[in-house]
């Protein structure tokens, strides 16, 4: 892990990500779920599934719902908007979203600039 000047942390190579799947990453003790979609876009959210309390969202299936990119928890199948963290099935629940970018073929995440819509 190398820190860049602006709080972004390098996680892995973009090519390490399988299209349509997620991986888990550990940054400053936080568990983050990282996804690459078929269209090439990349999203990072908290790996914690708020419904089950288990750190498993990285293992959920991604897809789209009315154009919204989502991940469905592998535990009880609630879906979350990958852009905002909002749960599509229960209004009052949301998960943390982390800014993520691709830089020189590397995936970088900022945990400091994380936001939580709740």
């Amino acid at each position: 892990m190398t820190s860049s000047v602006d709080s972004y942390v390098t996680i892995c190579s973009y090519d390490d990500l399988i299209p349509g799947r997620g991986v888990a990453a550990l940054v400053d003790g936080r568990q983050i779920a990282l996804f690459r979609l078929y269209d090439g876009s990349v999203y990072a959210v908290s790996n914690l599934d708020p419904f089950s309390g288990a750190y498993v969202l990285a293992r959920g299936l991604v897809g789209t719902h009315q154009g919204t990119p989502t991940v469905a928890s592998p535990m009880y199948k609630q879906r979350f908007d990958l852009r905002t963290g909002r749960c599509l099935d229960t209004d009052e629940v949301s998960i943390t979203v982390y800014p993520v970018r691709v830089h020189d073929g590397q995936i970088e995440i900022s945990v400091e600039a994380a936001r939580n819509v709740a």
Binding site: G20, L37, G60, L61, V62, G63, T64, G67
Partner: peptide
């Protein structure tokens, strides 16, 4: 799947149709 959804469906797929 990508071919199937582009020829016979729409969008990116989801946790229902993919499995």
């Amino acid at each position: 799947f990508v071919e199937l959804v582009s020829r016979y469906g729409q969008g990116e797929g989801c946790e229902v149709c993919k499995p």
